[in-house]
Design a binder for these strands. Structure first.
Lengths: 201, 201, 201, 201
DNA sequence: CATGAATGAGCTTTCATTCAT
DNA sequence: CATGAATGAAAGCTCATTCAT
């Protein structure tokens, strides 16, 4: 047997990773349709044919990318779940989200841009819907566990807040006062553990 | 012959409008790249050549569309400006936004999808940035005028809220409890006119 | 309305015909897979794009060709049907077949070459089978009407004879003694009208 | 070490044979162009590289196949040569042909399909014409030796009959009444040894 | 000897745009 | 003004072949 199986596997993994990195860069800058497979291969510094031995199609590359972006989200939720109060939860969630955006800015620009392109996402639609539903439920449970009434509605409010912050943060090239905005957002949520009217004074 | 000239102008205007309406439908369903000029002409029920006598290129059609979506935003702000309190302002702004999304759902799906594709929007980038900046300023002035401290930061919070709600509302095919969510969002903002800490517990 | 509809139709017909003629030439020489669409368009002296406005695909060009070859066969049968004896029928059928091969040599080389390429013919398979079945029946009826016993089997013999002659005639570039071969073939069939044992010595 | 060398040679021969068998199956089902080298190697259960150590190219595999089909033909002629009368010769030839088609149906479907693609055959440098000429001569000598006048022309008739039967038999998936058709074909040829008019009524 | 990762030319097809009529 | 035939560049993808291991 030639070339150990291990060596081959490592070789393949390296190539695959290079393609994915090239894809984030190009897709996020020029869009999915605006990036040709030829350009993708060039950026990854491989031949087009090789790309197709790793991914079934150009769409499959995108799919792999999007899946990895879903993992990101799950992690931010886990981070936040350690906080005992609603306000702590919100603060942690938003802070963790911004950290994640900093780490994978291109991936998230791409992911947000795709949210409303039905055709491109046809094969991603169901997984995405399921994922959004699950995320909403986790938020609802988290808020309910922290004593918030109308947790279902408040979860939607929080979800919108995360998405809105994401959107604004990605839009700005830099200089977005994320820390201040997060603090202002968080103080709208109850900071104590005891039950109270959602927003009273 | 001024009469004929008038008739011609009206006819041209009608044709142009038909193209734009066809474009919203197709672009929002299949994406910009996923819509061929031939399909566009067919949907507008005119010949391809005629389309090119109204618009310089396919991109020009998109540009025209996006510009009209900016007008929408300006109107929602005007609606809200009549409210005296911050909470009233927020409520009116969000309600008006949802109404606008209902009226031009396709246009907004398209517009949101394009937000993060820098290359496609290259020619729209500057106008867009200027527009976003102006919108932020209008929000800031509105909140400051209603006695909110840190109006600059709070304007960003509000902007994110509007965007987040827009995103969520467009994502859902139907059945989004917009009224409840808006109420929950609004009650996080001060409802009285007197100066106070934003939300202190 | 620009360019009369008639002029357009004529234009299209001329182009379509040019494509078909180019296709017979190239497909018969290099095979279906061996002919690229680019080569096809070049031979027809049009742009590739135009070819696709006349035919849905490369395969559709082939289909159109094959259909026209079936018409040929039907005509040879009609020619032969005027003869009262079996031998006259066979003679006329074979003579007419050779004439047809002379007229459309390339088309028939192509058609024969495709007979056994299942994948290429996938969409042609059913029509072809139906056509072969119908042809066999027409031969059987023709022989039975001319007093031949075992007309079903004899029809198969005749069918094979036609196919074999076609094969041999196409194989040879020229100099095939068609007239002599046809005479020798025909005299194996009964020349009188009265009923008799098919061929008894 | 002659033992090892022998074992190696046997192994190589076995591999080569596996490739050829895989090739008949795939080429006959999907055509030569429709079969990829990768698919070929997979069907033969070897690596692509190994295939290329046995055959210079994909075309070389086809060539080897076609050559083996010519051997088949020679054998049918030898079978028939034992018969003393023309009718016996024809019967044996056709019977032997059908037996051969049963044994190597896929190979013959492939071979017949290639008969009319001049460019492909040219590239293969198959001595097809020479082979056909030699076959014709053997038929002519066989018929002449059995007292048939115009043996040259009759040989062409017989050749066409064999080809026609081959064609029809391969076309039908099953249920072709080969025995009956062969009997009907054979009785058109003289069954006695003495000289006589071929078929006079 | 045997493997399969890697290459890149070439395939079919689409589509924005032009222009003769 | 209005048409749609015509163009040809460029897209996504396949595949025969090579070669480091």
């Amino acid at each position: 047997m030639p070339r150990t199986a291990d060596a081959n596997a490592a070789l393949r993994e390296k190539t695959r990773e290079r393609v994915l990195q090239a894809a984030v860069r190009l897709f996020s800058r020029h869009g999915f349709d605006g990036t040709s497979v030829r350009a993708l291969a060039e950026e990854a510094d491989i031949a087009v044919g090789l790309l197709y031995s790793h991914f079934e199609s150009k769409e499959a590359v995108l799919l792999a990318l999007m899946q990895s972006s879903m993992v990101d989200v799950a992690r931010t939720l886990e981070d936040a779940d350690r906080e005992p109060t609603a306000r702590g939860f919100v603060t942690a969630l938003l802070t963790s989200t911004v950290a994640m955006l900093d780490a994978h800015r291109d991936l998230w620009r791409l992911s947000q841009g795709l949210r409303h392109q039905p055709e491109v996402l046809a094969r991603l639609k169901l997984p995405l819907e399921h994922f959004l539903g699950a995320t909403h439920q986790r938020l609802e449970r988290a808020l309910a566990a922290r004593g918030l009434p109308e947790a279902g509605i408040e979860a939607r409010v929080l979800f919108a807040t995360v998405e809105g912050l994401t959107q604004q943060y990605l839009q700005q090239e830099g200089g977005y006062p994320a820390a201040d905005v997060i603090r202002a957002m968080a103080r709208k949520w109850p900071g104590a553990l005891r039950k109270r009217k959602a927003d009273a004074p």
